[in-house]
Simulated scan of single mutants.
Amino acid sequence: MTAPAATRRLTTLGPIAQLRAGRLPRRLSQLYIGLVLYGASLALMVRGDLGLSPWDVFHSGLIRHIPLTLGQAVVVMSFVVLLAWIPLREKPGLGTISNAIVIGLAADGVLAILDRPDALYARIGLLVAGVLLNGVATAAYIGSQFGRGPRDGLMIGLHRVTGRSIRLVRTLMEIAVVLAGLALGGVLGVGTVLYALAIGPLSQLMLPWFTVALPGEDATEPEPQRN
């Protein structure tokens, strides 16, 4: 019998245990659909042109100086962040590597077919849709129980090593990437504030709906964050 959504919890599994935990068709489908939707949500915010998420402020600044698309910058920086996992002794899983690759490819795919609208109301609609879709996508890929994304792992690793709260570590990380992005000429706007305020509550609300129950595992529920 499937556990009620309200009682499902995330489990902390190693890379091999993630694959052995069962329910692979459901979990793999949810993982990759979630990651594709995550990339699409980034593209919607880009075309809304009213501000990007903190990490994408940095990515948008980076591509002003390096010949990369936004999606390629997401992929490259994901693997750069994974290098920081080594001294933190974090272990990547299937979800980690998939996150690093699929989100950027999906973002570029949607950007290739979606233009920036001229009307302000349409741009606001794209921004709001992007933030909402990002919340759904975050809950879906985290709930598939295939591990943390590169940036989540960095945050958790720093939390563990420094003893500081997850909230503080996340805040300092996002302030740092926004400042770096602005220095590089990245895009900051009202959408950045909306994303920062909304994504945590949205993910928290939706995570129980998407978390796949894995019987027999000890339940822990870390705070859901971005890839």
Rank of each mutant, 00 (worst) to 15 (best):
A106L: 10
A106W: 11
A107H: 02
A107E: 11
D108I: 09
L111R: 12
L111K: 11
L111F: 07
A112T: 03
A112V: 02
I113E: 13
I113K: 10
D115A: 15
R116G: 07
R116F: 00
P117I: 05
P117F: 04
D118T: 04
D118M: 00
D118Q: 08
Y121G: 03
A122N: 11
A122I: 00
I124M: 14
L126C: 03
L127G: 06
V128H: 13
V128N: 14
A129K: 08
G130C: 08
L132H: 11
L132S: 05
L133C: 12
N134M: 15
N134T: 09
G135Y: 04
V136R: 01
V136H: 00
T138S: 14
T138A: 13
A139E: 04
Y141H: 04
Y141E: 05
I142D: 11
G143L: 04
Q145A: 06
Q145E: 05
F146C: 07
G147W: 09
R148F: 15
R148N: 15
R148G: 14
P150M: 12
P150C: 15
R151K: 13
D152C: 10
G153K: 10
G153I: 07
L154K: 12
L154A: 07
M155F: 07
I156C: 08
I156S: 13
L158E: 13
L158Y: 10
H159Q: 12
R160G: 09
R160Q: 13
V161C: 02
T162M: 06
R164V: 02
S165P: 08
I166Y: 08
I166R: 09
R167I: 00
L168S: 15
V169C: 04
V169I: 06
T171L: 10
T171I: 03
T171M: 08
L172Y: 10
L172F: 10
M173W: 09
M173G: 14
M173D: 11
I175L: 15
V177D: 06
L179D: 12
L179H: 14
L179K: 11
G181T: 06
G181S: 08
L182V: 08
L182G: 03
A183Y: 05
L184V: 00
G185V: 04
G186Q: 03
G186F: 01
L188E: 02
L188D: 05
L188S: 03
G189P: 14
G189F: 07
G191W: 03
T192E: 04
T192H: 06
Y195R: 08
Y195V: 09
A196M: 10
L197S: 11
L197T: 08
A198K: 09
I199T: 01
G200F: 05
S203A: 02
Q204E: 06
L207T: 02
L207A: 05
P208N: 00
F210D: 12
T211V: 15
V212E: 08
V212C: 03
V212T: 05
A213S: 10
A213V: 04
A213L: 02
L214N: 13
L214E: 12
L214F: 09
P215I: 05
